[in-house]
Amino acid sequence: MTKKYFEHVGSFLRPEELKIARAQFAAGEISQEELTAIEDRLITELVDKQVAVGLEKITDGEFRRANWHVDFFWGFEGIERSQYGEGLHFAGVETNDDSAIVTGKISFNKATHPFIQHYRFIKQLADERGVEAKLTIPAPAQCLIELQRGSNLEKALAVYPNPADLAQDLAAAYRQAILAFYDEGARTIQLDDCTWGAIMDDAFFQSVIKGVDKDFLRENFLRINNAAIVDLPEDLQINTHVCRGNYQSTYLTSGSYTPVAETLFGRENATAYFLEYDNDRSGGFEPLAEFKNPDKVAVLGLVTTKDGKLEDKEQLIARIKEASQHIPLEQLWLATQCGFASTEEGNILTDEDQWNKLKLVKEVIDEVWG
């Protein structure tokens, strides 16, 4: 049975000082060295707060990123930053239009990808405090769908006339990156993944993903994710977070896990699955029956990060018991539904709110699992 830890999905609200510093850097008012010094100090303060609340696996809060996903893509050789022209349309709000395009053959270079240095810094802080530094990165399927989104597809096809070659190179680059992080000491790497939501949400699929067979998409997502995490060291744990979108307290997709449960829960080679279950948009717990491998863990995201209202502890425990009717309790765990700031704008709650949410998660874990 996989050992379970008190850990957060990943991101934390950015301090105002950090937002100001990043804006000053973008405007050319401060240097990269000055920005990095501010980031280093604020990440150190964040780590100490995580340790104080009891987290056993800590992150850098994604403080060096503007976006949870494309910032990582830009570090690969053959992928460059671009502006798409319009953002993604969440419920009532549009995101920024940062995107990523293929400009050459895709590969990973440890010397040039900035996340290597980022991880070295958080790893040192974690080692000094006797906790583990978890790395959160977007899933390979997430990168693939971005590189092929709308007008980006034409640029991808110019380099990769055969889309299968693009997927193959991307999976290989991801695997090299994962092994490079392992060499730096990473033992838990989390693949954040919104792609499955496109299949779960019929309305979103019909309006955005046009002309693609759902079965093909399911298998394509599974194939590239598994190709990136094949034959890894036994002491490296691969987690995944299945997200429905998290931008300024809004969402992108809805729907039950049923359409993807057999593929995702049964056949993706992840260990712990952080699943959004904070409201009715995620459907019921019945799909959890597809967790047939006893070494896999379903981490119930029952505590929302989208607002500051604190959940009722007894209701959370009741929902965990309800879920245990479909999957053994020893394969269940608890976390927040997502990070608190998947982009630098952050969700609509306070710094105090986010720490109270994590304290509640810890209280329930201790009461239910001991």
Rank of each mutant, 00 (worst) to 15 (best):
G61H: 02
H8R: 00
F72H: 15
E62T: 02
T59P: 01
D71E: 08
V9M: 04
F72R: 00
E80G: 07
R14N: 05
F76T: 14
I43N: 00
D40V: 12
D71P: 02
L55H: 05
R65I: 12
A66D: 09
S99Y: 05
R41G: 12
R22D: 03
F25C: 01
G92F: 10
L35Y: 01
T44R: 02
I20G: 00
E77M: 09
L13P: 04
A37T: 12
Y5T: 13
D97H: 05
A100E: 10
L35K: 01
T59V: 09
V9W: 02
E86W: 11
S99K: 00
Q32L: 15
Y5S: 13
D71Q: 01
R41E: 15
A21S: 11
V70A: 08
R22C: 02
T59L: 06
D97I: 07
R22K: 14
A26V: 03
T36V: 13
E16H: 01
E56C: 07
F25R: 06
A27Y: 02
G61W: 07
H69F: 10
E34L: 08
A66Y: 08
A23E: 15
E77F: 02
G75E: 15
F76Q: 11
T59C: 04
S31A: 09
V51K: 09
Q24P: 00
E29D: 13
P15S: 06
Y5E: 15
S82I: 13
L13T: 06
F6L: 15
A27H: 05
S82N: 12
A21Q: 02
W68I: 07
A66R: 01
E29P: 00
E34D: 12
D71A: 03
R65Y: 06
T59N: 03
E94D: 10
K49E: 15
H89E: 14
N96G: 12
L88Y: 12
H69V: 01
E16A: 10
I20V: 15
R14E: 08
F6I: 14
V53Q: 01
E39F: 02
S31F: 10
N67Q: 05
F90I: 09
Q32F: 13
G61V: 09
H69C: 11
G10M: 09
R65M: 09
F76P: 14
A66W: 04
E86F: 14
G92M: 11
R41D: 15
F72Q: 13
I43R: 00
R22V: 11
P15R: 00
K57F: 13
K49M: 15
D48R: 02
A66S: 06
T95H: 01
G75D: 14
E45T: 10
A66G: 03
D97L: 08
R64T: 13
V53G: 01
F6R: 08
I43P: 00
R41S: 14
I58N: 05
R41I: 08
I43V: 15
G85F: 12
F90E: 09
E80W: 02
K19V: 09
A26L: 14
Q32H: 04
R64D: 10
